[in-house]
Structures are given as structure tokens and as C-alpha cells.
Amino acid sequence: MKKKRNFNLIAGGILAGGMLLFILAGVFFLPQDPETMNLELKFAGMSLSHPFGCDNFGRDIFSRVMVGARTTLIVALGTVGIGAGVGTLIGAFTGYFGGWLDEVMMRIIDALFAFPSILLALVVISLLDKGKYQVILALGIAFIPSFARVVRGQFLKCRELDYVKNARIMGCSSLRIIFVHILPNTLNVLVPTVMIGFNNAVLAEAGMSYLGLGVQPPDASLGRMLSEAQTHLFSQPLYAIFPGLAIILLVLGFSLLADGLEAK
């Protein structure tokens, strides 16, 4: 049992770390310009200068995957930042104080939870317009309920524990109890939740961009590349494989990491 746990953590760490390194490397160095078109290289196969081949405009797929993965990462981080930040605050306060505020907030959260997050994001997009920042905001809002629920559950559990009662007896303020005494104890649940949330954000962003509602050209995004690749699936399957693979590796890495941490 113990061996397997470590395996998850190690494999997840290597995959996620490798993908992050790959994305980071793309910030400083790109083998080719991702926007340069070269019709002579249309659908070129794998070669040393174009390791993943070229797309329908003769652009280097390797460089485009690097840039697209970066965009996806930024959107996912922003999304999780908004969702986890706001969700944690809501969950912490409603869970700790309870009462009618909790009752009302939970009704609203339940109503929002009734929407699958991508649907909620679509509503926001249809109200705001398309674009990278709109997607971050839309998905961020869509992710608040799930974080709020998890954190609230943890706070409900912790607030009944004797160490919290001790803190109240010694006269700690509610804010101090929430942030200094209880919050650190929710991290073991919160961190895996954030990682899973990150994965869902990656998948959701890819889905939205695939539908053309997310990141707009000229920004490259993995979802968008897949949607373009689909039309040329017959002539250049590589174009679809590599962006998809990038998504899978990124998500797989973080889900293994989350599993490993959770089992700890």
C-alpha cells in the first residue's frame, strides 16, 4: 500500500513538473515562431526542425503546443484562483458561523451547483462576450460552488472539535479562529481539491476554446488547435494528437499528485 502511494506522488510529480517545465521553457525559447505560416510545409510530417510536424498553414505544431499549453495553464490558474479564493471565504464563514446566513448561502450555492460548470460558464460568456479574461471569470465563478462546499464541510467538522472550543474559551476572535486555528487544518483536503479543480479548469477551458467561445485567435490554445485539427483529421492526424496529448499529460500529472497527497 505504502509503495503505491509513493508511486502516485512520484509519477504525478514527474509528469506535472515536466509539463510545467515544458511550458516555462516556451516562455524563454521557442524553436520556431508559432505564427509564421509556410505553405510549403503544409502538413509536413515529423522532422528534426519540426518535431511534431506542421499544420494546415505550415505552422510548427511543437511551438504552437508550447504556447497553447501556456495559455491553458494561465486560464486554469486564474480560474482556480478565483474559484478557490472566493469559495474558501464563503465556505469558511458559512461553515463556521452557520445560522440563517449559511442557510441562504447554501440554497444559492445549491442552485448554482445544479448547473454543470461548463453550462454556467456558457451563461457568463453569453453575457460578457468571448475572450481569455472572460473565460477566466466565467469558469472562476462556475467553480466557486464546489470549493465553497468542500471548505464548508471541513469547517462544519472542525468547529465541533475540542481545540476550537479551547480557542473560544481562551477568548480568540472568530476571525483568528477561522484563519489561524481552523484553515491550516483544512489544507490536507483543500490542496487535493485545488488540484482536481485545476484539472477541471484545464478540461473546461479546452472545451470552451474548442467550441470557439474561449481564447480567441491569434492566441494559440490547445482546445482551439484541436478544433482546427479536427477538420484535417484525415490528412494530418498528428495535428490532433499532440495538443490532445499535452492536455492529457498535464491533467494526468495533477490528478496523480492529488491522489498521492490525499492518500498521505
Binding site: 472545451g207 482546445g223 492536455i247 492529457i248 494526468l252
Partner: peptide, 14 residues
């Protein structure tokens, strides 16, 4: 683990 990391539309493309 691998299948969970595949977005539904990419599964569709594959």
C-alpha cells in the same frame, strides 16, 4: 487515471 485525463471532445476526435 489516463482516461479521466482525456477531455470528452478529444476522446470524440480519437
Amino acid at each position: 487515471q489516463v482516461i479521466m485525463a482525456v477531455p470528452a471532445f478529444f476522446a470524440g476526435i480519437l
